Simulated assay, not measured.
Amino acid sequence: MFRGSSSHTIDAKGRIIIPARFRDVINASGDERIMITRMDNCLFAYTFNEWNKVEQRILQLPQKSERMRRFQRFFIGSAQDCRCDGQGRVLIPPMLKGYAGLEKEVVLVGVMSRFEIWSKEKLDREEEQLATDMGDEQIREEISHLGL
């Protein structure tokens, strides 16, 4: 599982360093490649095993909805097969880099079955939104069901 967060910079060639603890999870999956796609103004990165599970869940969804077809086109159609190099870096494809607004400072955030790649500025705004959301009784109720 991916946990924790790590700040990095993206180099001029569009590469980011994957933290060793994340690389350990990737390598333990039996494949050094990851699938990266776009969602929620950031990038979602999955091991190949987890990506296969995601695709299977998506295949089970109704295909009739125009919105679901649009989601599949966006999420699956953007997915890129990426490989860690010998220095533990991954090249972020230009289209994905542009979508997430990755320019200099990036933050990798472990979210259990995946990790997310954020521009620092966008993640800062996301954290501000969370602070606002925590004032909402419904959100606090959902979190309380986790026993936290």
Rank of each mutant, 00 (worst) to 15 (best):
F22K: 06
F22T: 02
F22R: 01
R23S: 09
D24N: 14
V25P: 04
I26H: 05
N27P: 01
A28I: 04
A28G: 01
S29P: 01
G30H: 00
D31A: 11
E32Y: 01
I34V: 14
I36R: 01
I36L: 05
M39R: 07
D40L: 13
D40M: 11
D40Q: 02
C42E: 08
C42Y: 00
C42P: 09
F44S: 12
F44K: 06
A45T: 07
A45M: 00
A45I: 04
Y46A: 10
T47D: 03
F48N: 12
N49A: 13
N52Q: 14
V54G: 05
V54E: 10
V54M: 12
E55P: 00
E55Y: 03
I58H: 05
I58E: 06
L59F: 12
Q60N: 14
L61A: 14
P62K: 01
P62C: 05
K64L: 15
K64M: 13
S65V: 08
S65I: 06
E66F: 06
R67F: 11
R67G: 12
M68A: 04
M68V: 11
M68H: 09
R69A: 07
F71S: 05
F71Y: 12
F71A: 08
Q72V: 14
Q72M: 15
F74C: 08
F75Q: 03
F75K: 03
I76N: 00
I76H: 02
I76W: 02
G77D: 03
G77W: 01
S78P: 00
S78I: 03
S78R: 05
A79T: 06
Q80E: 15
D81W: 01
C82I: 03
C82Y: 04
C82S: 07
C82M: 06
R83M: 15
C84T: 10
C84P: 04
G86R: 06
Q87H: 08
G88E: 02
G88V: 13
G88H: 02
R89T: 11
V90R: 01
L91W: 01
I92K: 00
P93A: 10
P94D: 09
P94V: 11
L96D: 09
L96H: 05
K97W: 00
K97L: 13
G98K: 06
G98Q: 13
Y99L: 06
G101H: 02
G101K: 08
L102R: 07
L102S: 11
E103L: 10
E103H: 11
K104D: 15
K104N: 15
E105T: 10
E105W: 03
V106I: 14
V106P: 08
L108S: 01
L108T: 14
L108D: 10
L108G: 11
V109G: 04
G110N: 09
G110C: 07
V111S: 08
V111N: 11
S113L: 00
R114C: 15
E116I: 11
